[in-house]
Amino acid sequence: MRGLLLPLLSGVALLAAAAFATLAGDAYALRLATTLCLYIGLASSWNVIGGFAGYPSFATAAFFGIGAYAGSVLQAGYGVAAPLAWLSGGIVAALLAAGLGYCILHLRGHYFAIASLVVADVLREVANSWISLTNGGMGISLPLLSIGVEDQARLYFWVFGAVAALSVAAAWLVDRGRLGFALRCVEQNETAALMLGVDTRRAKRAALVLSSLAPGIMGAVYASWVSYIDPTDAFDVLLSVKPIIMALLGGVGTVAGPVFGAAAFLALEELFWRNLLELHEGALGLLVVLLVLFLPGGIRLVRPRRLLAFRPLAKPGRTP
């Protein structure tokens, strides 16, 4: 029952936030809620490969960026309708993930982390230099939808919300299914899992593809939302790191963790960093350092008395 409760609760919380945002009609609240959905989708997707399987993937930016570029090129260059372009963003990202799965999933630890990190760098350079397709560093401006500004904001919120809900639902299903079991085995001891007959390579590939779908779609939708992308923006390394921080905040390897983590991260972002323009990145870095040192198991493992003792938690319930 406990396993069911948390996702249900987070779903309800999401719906409540949605209703609040649309009813209030406040542009700022709506923008915040849309960003929250984006964060939830990214963190929850990362969690499938990074949390369940324990593979430290830094490829989120690559999936997001290639989705953004696929959607933008299709819309701006070939006049494809927006919903179709958004879906294509997800498909292109999934294809990239499938290819990557064959190439880099045999690497473990540091090597996997670096290989996944480098993918975004390579794609950024490609986007920079393949000018005939991507317009290079000039970026791509997207056609605006032919509806009013407020309707547009509401539409994007619902689209991001739907993708976020789907990715949380997917994580929940994976968690309860055979795939989730296989991924847990990989996380705990891959060699032993292999010896016991778990098809670890297939499970890892499935996890990587699953974790690329939502970022790909969201990248494409994001491009339409802000109506302009360039290589630096689309393949920003922070896009890979922020979902990890959110998952760490909420609890890696759980279904509800990334959802709470995304909400907590957004709250911190809004509370502190809007006032710290020059120190924005440094403050984010400080948050990361404190989080890693004192709360490696996420917020739900906070023991106020332990915090006062000024040392890292000795035995977090679940280590990533």
Binding site: P56, G109, H110, I244, V252, G282, G285, V288
Partner: peptide, 18 residues
């Protein structure tokens, strides 16, 4: 694990670079 140490040095680097 890798995820923790890598994230830590990333955070430290954000601070130093900033």
């Amino acid at each position: 694990p890798v995820l923790i140490t890598l994230t830590l040095t990333f955070g430290l680097n954000l601070i130093l670079n900033n």
